[in-house]
Design a protein around this nucleic acid. Structure first.
Lengths: 155, 155
DNA sequence: TTAAATGCAAATTATTTGCAGAAGC
DNA sequence: GCTTCTGCAAATAATTTGCATTTAA
């Protein structure tokens, strides 16, 4: 995990009178050990590998801290569970494309779309706070060659 | 409710060997009696006003039909319940701006952003299927005059 | 020492489902 | 008459919470 990120989190913990515990440490470590998106349950099993005493309740209590700290983002991918995205610290304005053939999620950034969103928001009389774009799309490879290049890699 | 919309729904019902019932009729009528977004529970009370025998179970069983029929869209506004948007028939490509001051939702359409989304999707090797933009923003009126013009009108 | 954090198990809440009776075609 | 629909109440599943105990500071 990046040192600046770690500092940001532990500064937040200190500022808020929170305590450093083995379980919290493990959850934080696990949360930023991957660039994949994960559910609370996924995070629990990742954290348990680092510190087996971590419980589901503590994971559910730690996630909102990381979200409030601004290092983790809650995502809706149309599934019944919430997903979390640890990549917003490095790429604060990225968006998501979801392959409907294989469910693979591709992250992308685009300055033009950013600008356009800001213009539209201003025109409506608002100032942008957070912006979400989610594109669901079919894979061109699948149509031309009969195989989505990601199929099998993801659920 | 628009006649073309009604036809589309009842054609769908017939094609799928489904039946016309008083409860379904009431739910359909209620679902398109407003341009506001609503939850399943909201739809239940709207439908009950038309036909008191409508039950929660039937509402939950009818919503997926309308979604599959393409006339109702499931939305995530970051709340715990699902919301439904009946405006996609008239405005198939609209997007949402949510005022973080008053929770008012403003719908908007923009041809440029549409085009840009299609370009980005193509560039990544995909063909767009459905696109969602959600902008959370603060109200400029609130900052300048101390009052969000929508405050009080919505929760 | 004392306030915060933890694990456990029970509670919560939106949504789904099994079933027996009712109703459309 | 046969199949689909319905309401009811029980089931489900993700997340939250109360509580007694542990632990950081």
């Amino acid at each position: 995990m990046d040192a600046a990120l770690r500092k940001k989190i532990y500064d937040f913990i200190e500022e808020h009178g929170l305590r450093k515990t083995a379980q919290r440490d493990a959850i934080i470590e696990a949360a930023f050990s991957t660039t994949e998106h994960y559910t609370a349950e996924d995070l629990l099993s990742m954290a348990k590998r680092i510190e087996p005493s971590v419980s589901r309740a503590t994971v559910y209590r730690t996630i909102p801290l990381l979200v409030k700290c601004g290092v983790l983002r809650e995502m809706d991918f149309g599934k019944e569970q919430k997903y979390y995205d640890p990549n917003f610290v490095e790429h604060p304005t990225h968006n998501h494309l979801i392959c409907v053939d294989c469910n693979k999620i591709v992250e992308f950034e685009d300055r033009n779309i950013e600008t356009l969103e800001n213009c539209i928001t201003k025109r409506l009389g608002f100032s942008p706070a957070s912006k979400i774009i989610r594109i669901e799309a079919t894979c061109d490879k699948l149509k031309s060659s009969g195989a989505c290049k990601n199929r099998g890699k993801c659920d």
